[in-house]
Amino acid sequence: MFEARLISSGILKKVLDAIKDLLNEATFDCSDSGIQLQAMDNSHVSLVSLNMRSDGFDKYRCDRNLSMGMNLANMAKILKCANNTDTVTIKAQDNADTVTFMFESQNQEKVSDYEMKLMNLDQEHLGIPETDYACIVRMPSHEFARICRDLTQFGESVVITCTKEGVRFSASGDSGSANIKLAQTSSVDKEEEAVSIEMQEPVTLTFACQYLNSFTKATPLSPQVSLSMSADVPLVVEYQIPDLGHIRYYLAPKIEE
């Protein structure tokens, strides 16, 4: 028996919004420690890694490890039927071929449940080693989203250059070029508005805008985002989901031919 309850459906909607741009379907691996998902986009250029800890749920029970393959468009149809303030309970029997989403209104006067067929998906799991990154940039998530959106107008790729002075995002194309520099903030009223840089050595890497923009769909999950970079390894874009876990995106850098 698997049962996981979140006080607000809104958070699950945000999680789904953060992954469904990149993935059509995905396997949710449920265990005692929580719900994990690791999946690559169709082109195998980027990867989503989601972790929702069991202690982040209002109620969590997982008697046996369970892998639930879900069509994310169908899951989105179901979550559309919930109000953000509804409680959501995800339920499945051991070895079941369906999962049930139950929504309860705050006053408990409306209870709805939706059953969805599960899918058997081929799992292609990548082993991602612990890595010490040359640069870790932390910044407001809305700022990162804005930069990605703005630079997409000027080129297909963004060059990210990180030094101890700051981080620079650049794009260029037929119409011209664009550069955005962010310095480390010296003092801020709110911690989530800070820009900070941990640097071992400077890094310059190029990434496809299309994927970066998909990653920013996670912006509503977290006020801050971190970008971890080293020469010639994939970028990690991480959003901490308060009291629940994290979502990480990996993106292979582009290589000049």
Partner: peptide, 14 residues
């Protein structure tokens, strides 16, 4: 021009 490698060229499949 630039080439877009896949993640499999950086990480091993488990």
């Amino acid at each position: 021009t630039s080439e877009q490698p896949k993640l499999g060229s950086y990480y091993e499949y488990e």
